[in-house]
Structure formats: C-alpha cells, structure tokens
C-alpha cells in the first residue's frame, strides 16, 4: 500500500462514518415527520392504538408505581439527613415536590418506559423485519409506518404524561410516608410545603402550577423519542435474531441519551418561556 493510500484509509473511514451519521439522522427525522403526519391523516388503526396504549400505558403502571414510591422515599430520607442539621426538616415537602414534579418524575418515568416498552418496540418490529413480516405488509399495500409506528407513537405521546402524573403523585406520597413516620411531620404540614413549592413559580391557565405543566409537557416529547427511536432501530434491524437483540440494546441506550439531552434543552426553553 502506497503512502497516499495509507493516508486515504482513515479519511475514507471518517467520510463513511459522517455519511452514515447524516443518513441515519435524515431517516430518523423522516420517520418522525411521517409519524406526525400519519397521526392526523387516514387510515387510522384504532385497534392497534388501543393495544399499544395497553402495552405502553397499562403495562408500565407497575414499574412506574415502584419507581415513584422509592424515589420519593429516598429523596425524603437523604434530604432529611442534611436538613436535620439546620432544623429544616419541615421543608422536606418542598424538596421532594420540586424534585419529583420538575425533573425526576418525567425523566425516571421516561427511562423506565424506555427499558420496558422502547426495547420491546425495537425487538418486536426488528423480529418482524428479519422474518419478512414487514415486507409482507408492504406487498399487501399496507404502509408499515402507519400500521406499526404511528399507533406506538400516538400511544407513547398519550401515555407518558399520564404515567408521569402517577409517578409524581406516588413520589410525593413516598416522601410523605418518610416525613410522617421517620421525621414526625404532619400530613398537613408536608402537603402544604409541597403545594407552596409548586405555587412558587406561578400558574399557567390560571390553575395549573407552571412546574406541573412543564412536568407534563416534557413527557410528550419523551414519548415521541421513545416510540420513534424504538421503531427506527426495529425497522433498521438486520442480521437475524442476533440483530434483534442488538437493535433493542441500541434503542434503549440511544433513547436514554436522547431523553437526558432533550430534558436539559427543554428545561432551558421552558424556563425562558414560562418563568423568566
């Protein structure tokens, strides 16, 4: 191999990698836009939507309850250690309420649903890809995006905010359990403290605390990310059953990173728009 060819090899590698990245980004957003369009145009697959809402929403309630409960309890427990030193345990409710509703509720719910439903979407659609079921749909003049992706996309967008509300409520209850049992606070004092922290940032639409509103708005985006990423990796699956496992793993890792990154940028935007 000549010197110029040796130098060209890494360049070609970088070139291929960049082209691959650009292609995947383009395809990812194309799938997102097709899903958004499919959500508001015929044909609608109502039965598939109900099945997906059951799988994503109802099926995730168990893990969401456990996540919320233990997160709220551990938040109260950890903060109590520090706050006791200053005699500020009455503010436990503020800390738990703010952390759970603003950040931990939406993000932890999304991460839990990613692990459960996002990987499932990638594996299910990936298995359909490698067993030619998606080709079968296409040959029968059925658009796989409308049939498979759109119901999951809509179901995730609808279910994530509801699951987040469940997580928030259970986390606050978990914190209350510790506050009452371990710190001897009254329920009234704790709940008043939670309310005050949520009311601090103001209200939107007159009655909805901004924290609650942003905590419910974020999961809409997270739901879209979970569904599109899971389905994208599923549709791109190749390499038989091994490929299905790979697709599920990639979907979970990529979705988790996207959720954490999107959470940061969304928080910036929401603070700028709603609070400042």
């Amino acid at each position: 191999m000549s010197l110029s060819e040796t130098a060209r090899t890494p360049l070609r590698y970088v070139n291929d990698a960049l082209k691959g990245w650009a292609f995947h980004t383009q395809e990812y957003f194309r799938l997102l836009f097709r899903s958004m369009h499919g959500s508001i145009s015929r044909p609608f697959y109502a039965r598939d939507l109900v099945i997906q809402m059951d799988a994503i929403g109802v099926g995730s309630i168990g893990i969401v309850l456990l996540t919320g409960l233990f997160t709220g309890m551990v938040l109260a427990l950890q903060s109590a250690v520090e706050m006791k030193q200053f005699g500020a345990t009455i503010y436990i409710g503020r800390l738990v309420g703010a952390s759970a509703v603003r950040e931990l509720g939406p993000v932890l719910t999304a991460l839990m649903v990613t692990g459960r439903a996002g990987s499932g979407m990638a594996a299910e659609i990936g298995a359909m890809r490698v067993t030619e079921q998606i080709d079968a749909l296409t040959t029968m003049s059925v658009d796989p995006v409308r049939k498979l992706v759109v119901p999951r996309f809509v179901a995730a967008i609808l279910c994530l905010p509801l699951l987040t509300v469940v997580t928030d409520v259970v986390a606050v209850m978990g914190g209350m359990l510790i506050a009452v049992v371990k710190l001897d606070l009254t329920v009234d004092l704790y709940m008043r403290s939670v309310y005050l922290t949520l009311a601090d940032t103001g209200f939107i639409f007159r009655y909805i605390p901004i924290d609650v509103f942003s905590g419910i708005l974020k999961p809409v985006f997270f739901g879209a990310i979970i569904a599109i990423t899971g389905c994208y990796f599923g549709l791109k699956t190749s390499g038989g059953t091994e490929g299905v496992g790979r697709a599920a793993t990639r979907a979970v890792v990529t979705t988790s990173i996207f959720i954490l990154a999107t959470d940061y940028f969304l928080t910036q935007v929401l603070i700028a728009l709603l609070i400042e």
Partner: peptide, 16 residues
C-alpha cells in the same frame, strides 16, 4: 399494481 399480486414468502412471514 401490488393489489394484483400475491407473495408467498420463504418462511411464510405470517403475522405472529
């Protein structure tokens, strides 16, 4: 055109 075609796949490709 596809509506005039039927395809039999190697592993049948039935919807699981």
């Amino acid at each position: 055109l596809r509506r005039n075609m039927g395809m039999v796949f190697q592993e049948a490709a039935l919807f699981d």
